[in-house]
Amino acid sequence: MGETITTRPLPAPSVAKGERLLLRQLRDLVSSPEAVIGLVILLTLSFAAIFAPLIAPQNPYDLMQLDIMDNMLPPGSTLGGGLTAWLGTDDQGRDMLSAIMYGMRVSLGVGIASVVIASLIGALIGVLSAYIGGRFDALVMRIVDLQLSFPSILIALVLLTLFGRGLDKVVLSLVFVQWAYYARTVRGSALVEKNKDYIAAARCLEIPQWRVLVRHMLPNCIPPLIVVSTVQVAHAITLESTLSFLGVGVPVTQPSLGMLIATGYDFLLSGKYWMSTYPGIALVLIVVAINLVGDRLRAVLNPRFTQ
């Protein structure tokens, strides 16, 4: 009999209450016009990015579909193949709209992947640090402090110079830059959770340590993590585009939005504005939409701000 009790995670008593809370928070989120606008933009752009191979006018990677004669046409021009390039074409004769849709795939993918991996690693380190405490905790927090005192752009720049170009390398450097934020956030909430009764109870039941950590403590440290990571996706996307602009980010064969902007930069002074303006607008829309939603999310999840 005792066995069955020990295997059930304890912090489950408020599932119903939690669901009601979630519903209320969702309503709170939707009650803000800014957040709704952000959510709509975000969903539309994600849809365009995910289904780009199906709905984009052209596959910008397929050299067979490109014609160098179409290069640098202004918006609204008709291409050799009869297609209308509403946003113009780039120096290779690619339709900008298609390039942007494919570019968003790379940008969003890199941003989300790096945040998911970094938050998992950071959360684990943060919980461990709070749980073990003592010297280990002090050491981890020193490393976190040291890393956070240096601007992420500089760290990522040096790392990418070492690793070389490539999607996986960009994600790796972004993970390296971001894990410290999560470790610090999660450690903060884990320190509070650690002293609560349910952890003491779990310990009394002689549940294995890792189980207390992963099943009991970690889930209760997640809400603050969600807020940090939402905004962090936008940060990661901006950082990636900046790195690609500096020429150390994604490879030329898989252009992200930042890469498209970098290409457009070379033609900026000759007035070919569409090559840098439109990918930039797509980037700004994504980043601002994520921030609008994230900003509201922070307010909704933080009881101090709800009236």
Binding site: H235, T242, F245, G258, G280, L283, V284, V287, N291
Partner: peptide
């Protein structure tokens, strides 16, 4: 949240 390099451009 705006990418500074793009704003500069």
């Amino acid at each position: 949240s705006l990418p500074n390099f793009w704003i500069g451009m």
